[in-house]
Amino acid sequence: MQLRINGEIRTFDAEPDTPLLWVLRDILDIKGPKFGCGVAACGACTVLVDGQPVRSCSYPVDGVEGEITTIEGISNGDTLHRVQEAWIEHQVPQCGYCQSGQILAAVALLGAVPEPTDEDIDLAMTNLCRCGTYPRIKAAIKTASGQGA
């Protein structure tokens, strides 16, 4: 099988029903997307497919069409994405486990709504965080969108 991931064509063997998440993590050693629930309920495994946030744990690899971006693919060399910069400014992560998914969900949100309101953020950011970093996620999204905190 073949997929375009973070700008590169990757070729691999996998059972067709294998979720994209496990292809990324176990077969291609791309560890940014995390496993939280396996049932599309938490968002830890979020990746972008053609810019849209997708929960890769529930996405069989043989159905995947489009260009995949993981957290590893949003920075430009050593230059971080502005969402990552905002995450650092607000010191968002605690355990950090949900954060690659949160960051990608935020990147997708800002792609669709450049200056999201609190309500936009509430609606779009459905990824769970057990550590409770939501207030800082919200503030960081505001910063990344140039709205101040």
């Binding site: 560890k31 957290i71 995450w87 650092i88 010191q91 968002v92 992560p93 950090g96 486990y97 954060q99």
Partner: peptide, 21 residues
């Protein structure tokens, strides 16, 4: 203080038990 673990945690670095390879 700025957290010592922040860079890894905003870049999806393989730092957790589940990421051991």
């Amino acid at each position: 203080q700025m957290r010592t673990d922040i860079a890894e945690k905003v870049t999806g670095a393989p730092i957790y038990g589940i990421d051991v390879q």
